[in-house]
Amino acid sequence: MIARVPLAISLAVFVALAALPWLAGDYWTGQFTRSLLYGLLALSLALVWGRGGMLCLGQGMFFGTGGYVMALLTMGKLGPGLADAWLALIVAAASAAALAAIVGVFVFWGASISGPYFAIVTLAIAVVLEQSIRSNYGLGGDNGLVGVPPLPLGTSAFDATPPYLLVLVVVAAAYFTLDATLSRRIGLVLDALRVNPNRLAYLGYSLFAWRVATFAAGGALAGLAGALFVAVDGFASPTLIGFGLSAEALIWVALGGRTVLMAALLGALAVRHGEALLAAWLGDWWLLALGSVFVLVAVAAPAGLLAAPLLWLGARVRR
């Protein structure tokens, strides 16, 4: 079983994040709201790829689906009666989960498409989805949907703190739920699903059901992240759904550590804010550097860069 970051450390991380608005001011609070949502996307990919062993090159499609559904609903494009933001969040996450389930059923049914084939098929689907959204004028084409209303938190739209805290609570809830779930039998089953699926099948588990369920759960998390992101950002753009964001999510998770949830989450935060800090003096070289580090990690440190330190720290804390 994969080692787990102890509760004390994850709690410390979230408490530190909760203090952020009082330490860092509105600008950074707004930035961290977004990167926390990217972190949630990273968590979904860590679940699907790191634990479930399904390398999805198009995880962005669920983020984007959640985002577009949220935008359509809250902007009242599907009828004013459906414009309630909280309902929309749920519907958005459910739609992304449904898309994931459909893709999953299609891909994993019967002689399942697995490994590298799965990666390519998910990439193809993401590319097609991005293309179709870009060419769909009902969805705003290349410009996307502008003017998504902010979350109705009853506070000033210019105060970045309430949405930040809401997002933090959602991400923390998702994290602790996932962490607790994966430390039980389900986690063991997923490890078997990744490492030795045939043996799992011998034991009478349905690989199909487990794969589809895991993929759909990942889709739901990504969809929720995308829906919140669109509400925070105020618009839904086709970049949320396609190749670019999917590639970025892959980088966060790979650099952080694909099998350790906290490492994936922190990977997203670190890369996003590393970019904000370093892009100033690295300029365009930043992406080159990031890509090169990513390649190096894939070749020489597949466990990621943050997983080992986190687990080491965890072992110290436990003692």
Binding site: L57, P116, A247, L250, I251, G291, V295, A298, V299
Partner: peptide, 16 residues
Amino acid sequence: LDTILATWGLSLVLKQ
């Protein structure tokens, strides 16, 4: 799968 990842990363590097 790591070959996929590494060459995928390489594609980003080459592009940039």
